[in-house]
Amino acid sequence: MVDWGIPIGAGIAFGLGAIGTGYAQSKIGSAGAGTIAEKPETFGLMVVLVAIPETMVILGFVVAAMMMIMLV
């Protein structure tokens, strides 16, 4: 019988990270766009701020990949 537990677990690890990152980036991105419209010189800072929540999805991906490769 196929063991679905690991792929599903990996999917949850990656998926929730992605949702979290997406939600955070949507908030930061919209606020950042407003800020850049007012102060174009903050562009560099905003790019960094938008990239900050990506840690979540990246760590989610790392966990998912490790589960898939090391546990299967």
């Binding site: 990506e54 840690t55 990246i58 760590l59 991906f61 790392v62 990949a65």
Partner: peptide, 16 residues
């Protein structure tokens, strides 16, 4: 520690 773990992205983005 979180900052250090964040460097995992070097591997993760490479993998992607």
């Amino acid at each position: 520690v979180g900052n250090i773990l964040s460097y995992a992205r070097i591997m993760a983005i490479g993998m992607a």
